[in-house]
């Protein structure tokens, strides 16, 4: 399908998460698979497609997940049900929500810089 013009594109919200425990060695695609599995189990395929979550960045113990604007609460509910990923016990702790990647990345960099 042809890409939609900017005015018709959906608005997104971005949520910054901290992965607990911090030494989790799960790859990005495995974290997404876990979220997708738990999300489909919680709200079904139709609900999941409405939330439309997507794992944008995973760096060290942080990750940013995108969802459709207005569905942040549902994304939080989905990620709250993530208890393990491929045999490892994990929890995704939401830290901040933003409407743009830039502001969230800035916060993400600030946090990373402060921790290093």
């Amino acid at each position: 399908m042809k890409p939609l013009p900017p005015t018709l594109r959906e608005n997104y919200r971005y949520i910054l998460y901290e992965i607990d425990p911090p030494d989790t060695s799960l790859e990005k695609k495995y974290i997404y698979q876990t979220i997708a599995e738990r999300g489909r189990s919680l709200i079904g395929d139709n609900g999941f497609s409405l939330v439309n979550p997507s794992l944008i960045i995973k760096q060290d113990k942080y990750c940013i997940i995108r969802c459709r604007r207005g569905e942040e609460k549902m994304l939080l509910a989905i990620t709250a049900t993530v208890t393990s990923g491929f045999g490892q016990g994990i929890a995704l702790r939401p830290l901040a929500t933003s409407g743009t990647m830039k502001s969230l990345k800035d916060r993400f960099m600030k946090r990373n810089g402060r921790n290093q």
Binding site: D20, P21, L42, K73, M74, L76, A77, T79, A80, T81, T83, G89, I90, A91, R93, P94
Partner: peptide, 18 residues
């Protein structure tokens, strides 16, 4: 039972809205 099972108040709100 362990610390990983805990959730934040924001997540409480999201789960309770279900």
């Amino acid at each position: 039972e362990i610390s990983i099972d805990m959730r934040s108040p924001r997540e409480f709100s999201a789960l309770a809205s279900l």
